[in-house]
Design a protein around this nucleic acid. Structure first.
Lengths: 325, 325
DNA sequence: CTGAAAGCGCTTACAG
DNA sequence: CTGAAAGCGCTTACAG
């Protein structure tokens, strides 16, 4: 009863038992407890890409909360391989994990998640989600994030915006692009004008800018899928002899630690990755306690953080020359 | 016998048993096996700071290898808190972990690690180490890394070098500074001339440069404890109107993904974090198999990667003016 | 309220 | 070689 923190035990007794336990060098054996009561106190966390700081932040948030809740975190990192992800799920089953927190790998089949649910392991999808599976979900409002980013530039007077980093393979990719399109359409602008489809790396942001500026009328503002692309875009602008912010505005999404320290500092939409992880862990424990409850989505609000990489658009040189003439 | 991959079972029998297992929906119960044979197939990994990409890389390397070895990874992230680290160790004991891989938090007392060893849980220290504890260790040759960095600048003709990011609290901090000192002394230079003591953040690198350039004869080359400081230093140089590489050389250590993408690209000493994690996991399994073997250290060699942030020093302006006069 | 017994699902050691 | 029994260290349900 002391071991399981029963409220029926008096404080003095509890202290005495603990003392004797210490003297005897007693160690609680969780495997034995687990075998008897069928509760492993283990939660699986399947990360799609641990080396990506975004997911490392999410993982840290999950870890901190599970630690507080007294649950062990068994870590899987599939590096976007659905095979590795599936094997990890099967391992979790053998360990009798009480739940799975997952940022699903690109292209995860519905069946894989459905399978886990059939094993009676509750699932919470984090950050990304797979369409067509009924699970709890925690993420941010990705659509709103890019909508805010685009609106910010539009309200500064920009009229030629580009979207860098369209990626249709993940829910995040779809939602962020939809937010951009929405803002553009609300302003009566063509959202398909300048769209670069590429993965979210710095290198791709760099190349995207070189591509975009081959056009006769290049964009004056860039909405990037995430900060990494925005950093690459700023490097690309410098490569072309342009000053980010002054000559072309750049906005990212995520607000990674680095964003505030760039020169110019990056305007971006802040997403709280650690909080996302915390909420996910909490949601899972609610689900474990009450398996029958309705599926729930927790969607965190992003926050626009304006810094120096976004300003009013430069006066078009051609127009200026024409006016005196 | 099939479950435990006994070689005594014929292939046909094995296949048949597997087939029947599948039909019946049998799932191996690791907790029960663990209770009987006292092998948990669980390894604890205690990370000092998961949000730091350096340690995220190490963790990913560990995870990949443990996965291959069929061991579950229970993750702890203490965020440099020795209290959280200690609680994690106690948790691992209750789960009967077969080993601990740890990047010890700053200020970890010898006792904490000693304690774990007394519980008969093998320990491998990774990247950092605590002096005075006999455990296996995997890391890189940090002393050599900064020695290579300094030698590179010295061979380009630099004579006033600064060291940014002295940190005496970790073995890595001590070793990297020692390497710098060694190279300086070998060149007959005073290693204490320009030394900035600070933690390894971009912001600190930025401030360090502002400080260093208040001097009458500022350094022409900067050896930084790690890449993050080097990035900050480059931003600081730009803030002062100086061009990194041309006006002042900057060298980092680690070669994070970003290093190659900066403008100018960063000269740095590459450390293979994922490999470090892999070696650590392998070393642990060797120790588990043979608890009596002598303590072993695996020290990986760093590699100098020369890019554009390091060049011959600028000609001193004062000297040039005096020559004609 | 207290205490002894049964049993979770494996592995191991031993009898046949 | 095969098969039945014991036991790992807990928790639970039940008898006293």
């Amino acid at each position: 009863m002391v071991l399981n923190d029963s409220p029926l035990v008096a404080e003095a007794t509890r202290a005495h038992v603990r003392q004797v336990m210490r003297e005897l060098g007693y160690v609680y054996d969780r495997a034995a407890a687990h075998l008897r009561n069928r509760r492993s106190r283990i939660v699986g966390v399947s990360v799609c890409d641990l080396v990506n700081p975004y997911y490392a932040d999410v993982t840290a948030g999950i870890q901190a909360t599970l630690e507080q809740l007294g649950l062990a975190l068994v870590l899987g990192n599939c590096a976007e391989s659905t095979d590795r992800q599936l094997r990890f799920m099967e391992t979790l089953r053998e360990y009798n994990a009480e739940g799975l927190l997952i940022t699903p790998a690109i292209g995860t089949p519905t069946d894989h998640l459905q399978q886990v649910l059939q094993w009676n392991i509750p699932v919470v999808q984090v950050s990304r989600y797979i369409h067509g599976v009924q699970t709890d979900y925690v993420g941010i409002d990705n659509r709103l994030a890019t909508e805010m980013a685009a609106r910010h530039l539009l309200s500064l007077g920009h009229e030629r915006l580009a979207y860098i980093g369209l990626n249709k393979n993940t829910s995040t990719g779809q939602d962020r692009f939809a937010g951009f399109q929405q803002a553009m359409q609300a302003h009566g602008l063509d959202p398909a004008g300048h769209v670069i489809e590429c993965g979210p790396s710095r290198k791709n942001g760099f190349n995207a800018v070189l591509d975009l500026f081959k056009a006769a009328h290049p964009p004056t503002g860039l909405v990037c899928f995430n900060d990494d692309l925005a950093f690459g875009a700023m490097l690309g602008l410098r490569q072309l002899g342009l000053e980010p912010g002054r000559d072309c505005s750049v906005v990212g999404v995520d607000d990674v630690a680095e964003a505030a320290l760039w020169y110019p500092a990056l305007t971006t939409v802040s997403t709280d990755r650690e909080k996302m992880g915390q909420e996910a862990a909490r949601l899972l424990t609610r689900r474990i306690a009450e398996p029958g409850r309705a599926v729930e989505s927790v969607v965190l609000e992003p926050v626009l953080t304006v810094r120096q990489s976004s300003r009013v658009p430069p006066k078009p040189k051609a127009a200026r020359r024409r006016q005196p003439g």
